[in-house]
Each structure stands twice: as C-alpha cells, then as structure tokens.
Design a protein around this nucleic acid. Structure first.
Length: 406
RNA sequence: GGCCCUAUCGUCUAUCGGUUAGGACACAAGCUUUUCAAGCUUGGAAGCAGGGUUCGACUCCCUGUAGGGUCACCA
C-alpha cells in the first residue's frame, strides 16, 4: 500500500520556499530555505522555489536575482521554479469560482488610504474554530471569528497573498509547509481558504525565529546589511559555514557533533528535533564555524582565504602590536636572534633552506622571530604564508628593519 | 490591547520522572625552544516563580511572570 503510493508518487513529500523579492536575501530566508531543502532531501522529496511577487509595487527583478544568486551560492538547489506574477490566470479562475460558489464576494468599500479600491474581493468567513497539527508545536488552535471577512484580492484580477499561497500550494501538490513562526497566525486564514476551494490541507511546521542580541526579530530596519546573506559572503564567510551555523541555530542532531557539511546535514536532519523557542543569532559562533570549515579545505584554498582576509582588513597598514625588542626570548640571547634573522635574510626567497636552517638552529628560535619580524603581531599566520602574501622584497625590508631594531 | 507561540549557563543547546544537569561558542587562568590569528589543560557559569501530580520533578498539569510573534486593499 505504502509502497504503491510511493511508486505513483502520491506519498512523495513536496515542499516549497516562497520568498518575496522585496529586498536582498535575508539570513532568515536562507535558513528557512535550508530547512525546506534538508527536509526534502531527507524524505527524497521535491523542493519547489516560488517567487511571491504579487505585490507589484514592492517586488523587483533585482531582488529576485539577488535571492536566487544567494541561494545558488549556498548550494541550495531547487527542483522546480515558479513566479506568481506569471500565474494570474490561475488565481483569477479560483476567485471567480469562489464568488460563484459564495465562499467569496465583491465588497463595496470606503477607501481609507490613497490607492484603496472602492471594491475588493472578501472571503466569506464561516467563523469557526480551526485546529491544526504542527510538526514542531503539536496542536495549535485558533478561533477565526476575529479574522472577519478578510480581503483575498484587490480585484478578481489582482489576487493577494493568502489566496495565491493556498491556490499554488494546492495546484503544486505541496505536502509540507515549512516556514517561519511569523506565519503561524496566517495559517488559520489559509486553512479556511483551502476548505473553501476543496484543497487538501498540507502538514505545517513553523520554525522558531532568529533573534538579535535584544531578542527581537532580526530586522533589516534595525540591523541593515548584517541581515543579508551578501554581507556574510563579503565578510569572507564560507557558504558551508553559514549553512552549518544556520542549521544548528534552532536545531541539533542530538549528538555532540557540530561541524557538518550540507551533505551530512541532509542525512541527519530530523524536523522533530527543531526547537520551539526563538534563538539569538551569534556572530562569534558563526566565525567559529567558519574557522572549522576553513580547516576542512585543501591547503591552497586555505591560503587564498588567508590572503584575502589579510588584504581585506588592511592588516599590514596598522601599527605593529609589539616592539620586536620587547620580546623576551627567555633562553635565547638577543644577539643570537639577530644572527638567525641575518642568516634568514640571505635565504629569504628559499623556503626549503629556511626550514633546513630552522631545524638545525631550533625551529622556535628562528621561525618565531621571523614570523614576528614580518607581522609585527603577537599572533599572526605562519612566516611562510606571510612571505608569500607580502612578497620577497617587502619581507626582506621587514626583516632588515627588525635586525636594526635588535 | 486581542489572539497565538515560547521559557536549562551571557549565547546555541543535551536531558524525553531518578544525572555530580552534559557539550559548544564566548569569557578567565595556565601550558607550549613554537610554521601561534593554532593547539592543549583547567575554571567560573543554568533549570523564571508559585502551586499541584508523584516515593521522586528541569522533565507532566495549572496559575502567574517574562520574552517574542501577529493583528494591511504587504508577504
């Protein structure tokens, strides 16, 4: 029975992500997309991308592209793609049908704001209790009476969010709606519309929200750039690190493993383990995930990242943190350190020779002052990476300078 | 304010009635003759409050409190 259903695709999980292109890709949108993606992969289901651009005033092609590019950068691939602005005919037919059947009606209005219509399409609210099962929160109950006859279309040709969502989810065979908790109060409305058009109710899962340090919803208004995926991309965060971080905020596998690749996440993901309460977005932890993921990269890739980050923060233009003469070499006299640097200066363009010399003279005695002479920092990348990044000439100049100071 | 959701270290979390309440990030201290923005060791740090239920509650129930979300002719 179950196998038959699977064979005919009737039991197949279908999820969807429905971003609205009214701004650049938000980290919250990225996280919701990730959870949908993980659930689809885990269940061998289908993942639909649907651009919700019914609001012509606020939606732009640029934002749509930004969202799609960001998701592509993260490696979150979808199986099907739709754009609501291209599906108006479908919605119109449903609105007409609803009006005809009496589940919706054209209502005369007194416009309250500029742009308001004198006539809109309202849903005929049956005023009942709606109880739905949520994968994350169990039973949720609403009395829809207080919703009134809400507006579902500005006119039969201009559908609004709730109508479009329900029609699309129905027509596209969406089985699971995984979205942010901010949509939880939209759910009863949408269930009412489903019942009016005879659509099957999908299974809901409302994800906890990501909060800022003040425990407020992460908003663009308050945090600007820092809520966009682009911001982290520009800051040198690896896509896999962002994904890993986003997955582990509000969810965990129940084991003590924290570092995961996307592929690994797909395997261990369990929506039942998603947290109920909102969680604070912790940049420090993101940076830690980034470090962990950098370690997983081939050496050459790691070097490129190092190089980029050093150039990015203008590392060498800042004053040295420490004076080389202030280093306490404990057992190594200054004169000896000076001698090591002078020796290294002659072979500075030959890593193997420096290594050979360092091994003879004691790695720490040679490499530590060399690294310090090059960076001027108490903590820095290793000397060979530094030489590669700043070049032989600049390295020579820095070592000469250090010798002079000693 | 109405409705809805939530409640373990500063933060992310484990625990599914019996634990010295575990881990990670961050922080502090220490170690390291050392390719150190690293690593290692150690440390401080938590069950919102009050009632039940129970031999026994962080865990189940109720109330309170706190926080959040949402209340468009946006999505």
């Amino acid at each position: 029975m179950n196998i038959l259903n699977k064979l005919f695709g009737r039991n197949k999980v279908v999820v969807r992500m429905a971003p609205s292109p009214t701004g650049p890709l938000h980290v919250g949108t990225a996280r919701t997309t990730l959870f949908n993606y993980l659930y689809a992969k885990k269940m061998s289901g289908k993942f639909i991308m649907r651009i919700e651009d019914t609001d012509k005033e606020r939606s732009t092609k640029e934002f749509e592209q930004n969202i799609l590019d960001g998701l592509d950068w993260l490696g979150l691939k979808y199986d099907e793609f739709y754009r609501q602005s291209e599906r108006t005919d479908v919605y119109v037919s449903y609105v007409r049908k609803m009006i005809k059947e009496g589940t919706a009606y054209i209502s005369k209005e007194t416009p309250k704001e500029p742009g308001d219509r004198a006539e809109v399409v309202r849903f005929k609210n049956p005023n009942k209790k709606v109880i739905f099962e949520d994968l994350i929160r169990d039973k949720v109950e609403f009395d829809t009476t207080e919703l009134g006859d809400f507006v579902i279309a500005k006119s039969p040709e201009e559908p609004l969010y709730h109508l479009a969502v329900v029609v699309d989810d129905h027509e596209m065979g969406v089985t699971h709606v995984i979205r942010g908790e901010d949509h939880i109060s939209n759910t009863p409305r949408q269930i009412l519309i489903q019942e009016a058009i005879g659509a099957k109710r999908p299974i809901y899962a409302h994800l906890p929200l990501m909060l800022d340090a003040d425990r407020q919803k992460l908003s663009k208004r308050k945090h600007g750039e820092a809520v966009s995926v682009d911001f982290y991309k520009k800051s040198g965060i690896l896509p896999e690190a962002l994904l890993n971080f986003l997955a582990l905020i509000g969810w965990n596998p129940g084991t003590e493993q924290e570092v995961f690749t996307l592929k690994e996440l797909c395997e261990v993901f369990d929506i039942k383990k998603v947290q109920k309460g909102g969680a604070v977005f912790n940049e420090k932890k993101l940076e830690w995930f980034n470090k962990e993921h950098i370690k997983l990269l081939p050496e050459e890739e790691q070097f490129k990242i190092l190089q980029k980050s050093i150039e990015h923060e203008d590392y060498f233009s800042r004053a040295p943190d420490l004076d080389i003469t202030k280093i306490n070499w404990k057992t190594v006299p200054v004169a000896e350190t000076k001698m090591h640097l002078e020796k290294v200066l002659m072979i500075i363009d030959d890593k193997d020779q420096i290594m050979k010399y360092a091994e003879e003279a004691g790695k720490g005695n040679v490499l530590w002052p060399l690294r310090f002479a090059l960076s001027g920092k108490e903590k820095s990348p290793d000397p060979f990476s530094l030489i590669r990044i700043i070049g032989i000439d600049e390295s020579r100049r820095r070592v000469e300078n250090a010798i002079k100071l000693l």
